[in-house]
Computed example of a mutant assay.
Amino acid sequence: MIDHLDHLVLTTTDEQACIAFYVDGLGMSLESFGEGRKAFRFGHQKINLHVKGKEFEPKAHLPVPGALDLCFIASVPLDEVIAALQHKGMVIIEGPVMRTGATSRIRSVYLRDPDLNLIEISEVAS
């Protein structure tokens, strides 16, 4: 019945810091839509952005910054991701480590966004 994820919603306390992390840090594209709404686009998906206290309706029952644990599959080898993150001064808190992804084994690093959401960036393991 379900084929794939279209988008998810991230709630932030600091819109500019969040945009800097996902756009400048991770290379996602910033998109504006609707009446002042923002989203981060990557691949065929996007992350819609809500600012705590100014969420769009309908919203999650308890939208809380820092409650997400997201895993992204990189478009380049993980060693290139690690080098780029380090070059930008982004702190890797764990990894690289082997994990189990949705369809295969993955090799991952972990970091936190400005709201302390856990961000996993991975490559499919050979």
Rank of each mutant, 00 (worst) to 15 (best):
I2D: 04
R41N: 09
D79R: 02
L78Y: 04
Q86M: 02
L5Y: 13
T11V: 14
F56I: 09
S32M: 11
K46Y: 07
E57L: 15
H50N: 15
C18M: 11
V23T: 15
T11D: 07
H50T: 01
G25D: 03
A67F: 10
Q86P: 02
T13R: 15
N117A: 03
V64Y: 00
S32V: 06
G95P: 09
Y22N: 10
G101I: 10
S29N: 07
I82H: 07
M98Q: 13
S29A: 12
S122W: 00
P96L: 08
S29D: 13
C18H: 01
P58G: 06
K59N: 07
V124A: 10
Y22Q: 06
V76L: 10
C71E: 12
A84P: 00
V124G: 01
E15N: 01
R37D: 11
V97G: 02
F21R: 01
P65N: 05
G43Q: 07
T100E: 13
I92P: 09
L116M: 11
L70E: 00
M98F: 10
Y110S: 05
H44N: 15
M98C: 07
V51H: 04
A17Q: 14
R112N: 06
L116D: 12
D6T: 03
E35G: 15
L5H: 09
H61S: 11
T100Q: 14
E80W: 01
D24R: 14
L68I: 01
F33C: 07
F42V: 12
D3R: 09
F33T: 07
Q45G: 04
Y22W: 12
H4P: 00
L111A: 04
G53V: 12
A83P: 05
D113Y: 12
F33K: 00
L26Y: 08
V97H: 09
E123T: 06
D79L: 05
Y22R: 08
S29P: 00
